[in-house]
């Protein structure tokens, strides 16, 4: 647990499953919050990528979810918690090129099976747990020091 006095920034954002009109709005918000803190551009960019991939996953697959941003002096923590179908085989889902995206998602340019792999690439710490028919929980950290 992070002690309260160390938290510089803490925000929770609700994500609506299936609503592609709003998809990406939370990532845009989070990016602007981090920019305001005058963090280095590359750190802000990596955080935004991680957040966007997680947000698109929730919109694409889950009923609903929450993305939380926590900034403490030495790292940015992004958590994505959803209520949805879950991932039966995480190892498989992590592989580049593996995707269960439907036609609608693919028409928008997604579903190449890069999302989770990309999140892992851009995070310093990446944790994923999932329960079928319950949901998926992602925790990513990006080090500031």
């Amino acid at each position: 647990m992070v002690s309260v006095e160390k938290i510089l920034e803490k925000h929770d954002f609700d994500i609506e499953g299936g609503n592609f009109n709003k998809a990406g709005t939370v990532s845009t918000r989070i990016k602007s919050i981090l920019k305001h803190r005058q963090l280095p551009d590359e750190i802000v960019r990596r955080s935004a990528i991680v957040c966007y991939e997680a947000e698109i996953n929730i919109v694409s697959y889950a009923k609903k979810g929450v993305i939380s941003l926590t900034v403490i002096p030495d790292k940015i923590i992004i958590e994505a918690n959803d209520e949805g179908p879950g991932i039966p085989n995480i190892e498989l889902a992590m592989q580049q090129g593996y995707s269960t995206a439907n036609q609608q998602i693919r028409e928008m340019g997604f579903g190449a099976g890069m999302g989770l792999y990309n999140i892992k690439t851009y995070s310093d710490v990446f944790d994923i747990t999932s329960e079928v028919n319950k949901g998926t929980f992602l925790k990513m950290a990006i080090n500031l020091i």
């Binding site: 960019r45 957040c51 997604f110 999302g115």
Partner: peptide, 30 residues
């Protein structure tokens, strides 16, 4: 767009034929 997210670098031009709002969101993110 999945590949744009994986490979495009900051400060680059993005050449694409897709025009939905996600392209703009992604350009902002990256």
């Amino acid at each position: 767009m999945s590949d744009v997210l994986a490979f495009a670098k900051a400060g680059s031009l993005l050449l694409t034929g897709l025009t939905n709002t996600q392209v703009i969101r992604i350009a902002n993110v990256l």
